[in-house]
Amino acid sequence: MLKFSLKQLEIFVTVAELNSFTNAAKALYLTQSTVSAHISGLESALNTRLFSRDARRSVTLTAQGQRLYPAAKRILSDCRELTSLVENRHEELPLLLGASTVPGQYLLPELLASFLRRRPDCRYLLRRGDSQQIHELLRAGSVRIGFVGARLDPARLRYTPILEDRLVMVTPNTPYYQEKKRAGVFGCDLLGEPTVAREEGSGTDSAVAAYMRRRGFPAAKLRIVARVDNPETIKSMAAHGAGVSVLSALAVRQEVEGGRLLAFEMDPAGLRRHIYAAVRQDETFAELESQFLRFCRSFFGRSSDIE
């Protein structure tokens, strides 16, 4: 009789992939003590040590852990496939979705409502976070389909671009910035202005950092007066004169059209990035999940290789 559980294997794989008991606990919505207890129980059942821990609390797989890891991954994948094989395609099946801020706020509401009209029996479980947090949830298996604005782990996840997004510099609609707009100033020329930035770990922040590196603009010259994790708050702060900000054009369309904010293209070519649907490389999809992914392709009018 087996002396260990699937839950222990799931926690083992999550710790191995995140190299951290703390991050694994966050991804699985468990306490760190619960994660540690499960790992200790698995090590006891197998009579071997699976992780090495150093003084800085860094966690790495032992030689035995490295041998166990691919087998544990196969077992968990087979269990997910078994669930899919016996599932009735017409039963209610929660779609486990994750979304970073921009797709979560400005794309998914219409997408999910449209899919519900096609499949009124469908149910969603949607988890929100920045791009980095959604990646952690995907790797841990807590969500099965993620919508993100950055490709942070191409070795373990598959990304399909579903929509092209522009990033623009937004400013208050004041005479000072109106004059700059008339003069043909670009957003890159405003990078030295007081700035309200997105939080580190967001797809927008990663795209802006990469853009500044390409242009040779030192990060130290960026005058960040605040970092905020909500674009709605950032837009309000910018409109009230707290600073400029680089945001998704999707997020600021109404404010720009209504005259509360001005939007500047970052440069003559424009700063563009993709919104991606991300899944794990080894994922096996249930019928409803495959149908949802096909709907995403048609909804945003893009081809995709996700199946």
Results as ranks from 00 to 15, higher is better:
Thr48Lys: 06
Ala269Trp: 09
Pro172Thr: 08
Pro268Ala: 12
Gln66Cys: 09
Lys73Gly: 06
Val168Gly: 00
Ile134Phe: 00
Gln132Thr: 12
Ala37Gly: 13
Ala155Gly: 11
Ala210Ser: 15
Asn88Trp: 00
Val196His: 00
Leu9Pro: 00
Lys3Asp: 12
His274Gln: 15
Gly192Ala: 15
Arg49Leu: 15
Thr83Cys: 12
Arg294Cys: 10
Leu138Tyr: 00
Gln291Thr: 11
Leu97Val: 07
Leu68Ser: 00
Val256Cys: 06
Leu18Trp: 02
Ser36Phe: 11
Gly258Gln: 11
Phe299Val: 09
Glu257Val: 12
Thr284Leu: 12
Arg139Thr: 08
Tyr276Gly: 04
Thr31Ser: 14
Ser114Leu: 08
Ser52Asp: 15
His274Asn: 11
His90Phe: 12
Leu6Glu: 04
Leu222Gln: 03
Arg128Ser: 12
Cys296Phe: 03
Glu92Gln: 11
Phe51Glu: 01
Cys296Lys: 01
Arg297Lys: 12
Thr34Gly: 08
Leu95Val: 07
Pro268Phe: 05
Leu116Asp: 07
Phe300Gln: 04
Val13Arg: 02
Val102Cys: 03
Gly216Gln: 06
Gln132Phe: 13
Tyr176Asp: 13
Arg166Thr: 08
Phe12Glu: 00
Pro103Cys: 05
Leu116Asn: 09
Arg156Asn: 12
Glu87Leu: 15
Leu288Ile: 10
Ala238Val: 15
Ile75Gln: 02
Phe21Thr: 02
Gly141Thr: 06
Leu288Met: 14
Glu287Ala: 13
Thr101Pro: 02
Phe217Ile: 11
Arg117Pro: 03
Cys122Val: 15
Gln281His: 13
Ala71Arg: 10
Phe300Asp: 04
Leu28Thr: 00
Ser100Leu: 07
Leu138Lys: 04
Gln105Lys: 14
